[in-house]
Computed example of a mutant assay.
Amino acid sequence: MMKRRTFGLGALATLAVAGCSSKFRTYNGPEVTSIVLNKGARRLYLLHGNEVLKSYKVALGFAPVGPKRVRGDGKTPEGTYVIDRRNPNSDFHLSVGISYPNRRDIELARAMGMDPGGDIFIHGQPNPGVKKGKGPDWTAGCIAVKNREIEEIYAMVRLGTPITIRA
């Protein structure tokens, strides 16, 4: 009787673990050579050369029209940056960092006597206990996608990948 029970519990544990999925995926397809965000269309594109590998609908900063100039303005930056960090422990499922602010962004903000801000990411949805902004564009200036989509992006995009953010 004990052997049968032990086997049953072991089988249940194996099934439970097999049913769990990791947020960390693997990707073996063509290299993502650039990323383009069209803010007006609310679309993010992962490209290999001129070929679109993936396209995603996004949410932006809570005041998305116009380029980001200062901390707290709710705008998503415009310009060319690079993916410069990865955060597996993000408050928003997973995230990849964008190199905002660049030298020009810093100079523009300083000319106004302001801080340009920072911590701009492509990220998933908020983890439990993290407050989400209101409305269709709800981030503080980041680019938000669904959790399964940031899992793809996180697997596909490498550090140093250029990202162009257009109005």
Results as ranks from 00 to 15, higher is better:
Val17Met: 04
Ile120Gly: 04
Leu108Ala: 15
Ala41Trp: 08
Ile163Tyr: 11
Ala111Val: 12
Cys142Gly: 01
Leu108Gly: 11
Ile122Leu: 14
Gly61Trp: 03
Arg86Thr: 00
Gly29His: 08
Trp138His: 07
Leu159Thr: 08
Val32Ile: 13
Thr161Gly: 01
Ala111Gly: 15
Phe92Thr: 02
Ser95Val: 03
Asn102Cys: 10
Glu151Asn: 07
Arg166Lys: 13
Ile98Val: 11
Lys132Ile: 10
Glu78Gly: 11
Thr80Leu: 13
Arg42His: 12
Pro88Ile: 01
Pro101Lys: 11
Leu9Gln: 04
Lys132Ala: 13
Ala59Tyr: 10
Tyr100Lys: 13
Ile163Trp: 11
Met112Asn: 14
Arg110Thr: 14
Ile122Trp: 13
Glu149Gln: 13
Lys23Ile: 00
Arg5Trp: 04
Gly129Met: 02
Asn87Trp: 05
Thr6Trp: 04
Gly66Asp: 14
Lys134Trp: 09
Gly118Ala: 05
Gln125His: 14
Tyr27Glu: 01
Cys142Ala: 01
Asp91Ala: 05
Gly19Trp: 02
Leu9Asn: 03
Met112Ser: 15
Asp137Gln: 05
Val82Phe: 12
Gly10Thr: 13
Val96Pro: 02
Ala13His: 03
Gly113Thr: 14
Gly61Asn: 02
Gln125Ala: 12
Thr80Gln: 10
Asn38Cys: 08
Gly19Gln: 02
Tyr56Leu: 09
Leu44Asn: 12
Ala59Phe: 07
Tyr154Ile: 03
Val32Arg: 09
Leu37Met: 12
Ala11Gln: 05
Leu108Met: 14
Glu31Ala: 11
Gly40Trp: 10
Gly160Pro: 11
Ile122Thr: 15
Val157Lys: 00
Leu12His: 04
Ser90Lys: 01
Tyr27Gly: 02
Gly72Ser: 02
Ser95His: 05
Lys3Cys: 01
Val130Ala: 03
Asn89Ala: 01
Glu31Pro: 07
Arg166Phe: 08
Leu46Gly: 08
Lys75Pro: 09
Asn38Lys: 12
Ala167Thr: 07
Gly97Pro: 05
Val82Lys: 13
Ala155Thr: 03
Leu60His: 07
Arg166Asp: 08
Ile35Ala: 11
Thr161Trp: 05
Phe7Asp: 05
Gly8Leu: 06
Pro101Gln: 11
Gly118His: 07
Arg69Phe: 09
Leu9Lys: 10
Ser34Glu: 15
Asp115Trp: 08
Asp115Asn: 15
Ala109Asn: 13
Lys134Tyr: 08
Met1Pro: 09
Arg110Gly: 09
Cys142Lys: 02
Gly113Ile: 14
Pro64Gly: 07
Ile106Pro: 06
Tyr45Asn: 06
Gly74Leu: 03
Ala41Glu: 12
Thr33Ser: 14
Ser22Cys: 00
Glu31Asp: 05
Gly10Tyr: 07
Thr26Tyr: 00
Gly61Lys: 03
Asn102Glu: 14
Val157Ile: 02
Lys134Asn: 09
Thr26Glu: 00
Val70Thr: 07
Gly160Trp: 12
Val157Leu: 00
Arg86Pro: 00
Val145Pro: 08
Gly79Thr: 15
Thr161Ile: 03
Thr33Glu: 07
Pro136Asp: 03
Arg5Ala: 01
Ile106Leu: 09
Ile83Leu: 06
Ile120His: 06
Leu12Ala: 11
Val96Ile: 15
Lys3Leu: 06
Gly72Asp: 02
Arg104Lys: 15
Ile83Arg: 06
Ser55Gly: 08
Val58Glu: 06
Tyr81Ile: 14
Lys75Arg: 15
Arg110His: 15
Pro162Glu: 06
Thr76Gly: 04
Arg148Ser: 04
